[in-house]
Amino acid sequence: MTQNYFELFALEAKFNIELQTLETNFRKIQAEVHPDRFVTAPAPEKIKFMHLATLANEAYQTLKHPATRAKYLLELQGISAISETNTAMPTDFLMQQMEWREVLENGIAEKEVDTLENLIQEIKVEVKSLQLQLIELFDVKKDFTSATDVTRKLIFMAKVSEDIKHAIERLD
């Protein structure tokens, strides 16, 4: 399989993709490779379509979320955004992360769902701004070095948002 994830869904390899197209083309592939259609097919064919179904699912999940989409765009350029040996991030960004983690910890301890909901909103604003930067860096300037820095931030944000959402679910 030489196709990349974007090609699989007939999308241009950009950060700012048409989510509707992604959705529609994913459903199309899903319908085509549905196991029910190959009940009587020979085994090698079944396996082939099972692989395609798995690939489509993986590709869809990757492209659907902005953080993983950005990370994948960098991978296509041969850049690893989350290399374990790269731990340098801007200090003010990390300070902010630490503050949010503190609010999260206190929110869980005090069972303050409202505080956590507000935190999610605050983070959403930041995420939006990072995404706008990525459209500019990936799609307009093709500045993959700067895009890597912003992508690392976005991955951080996705992780903290996810942790907050889980905390809210547990408190509800």
């Binding site: 955004a81 989350i82 374990e84 991030m89 200090t91 990390l94 300070m95 992360q97 951080f156 992780k159």
Partner: peptide, 13 residues
Amino acid sequence: GMVGAPACGDVMK
């Protein structure tokens, strides 16, 4: 010294 790991969201000061 402040460092972070995006993959797991760890922050260390």
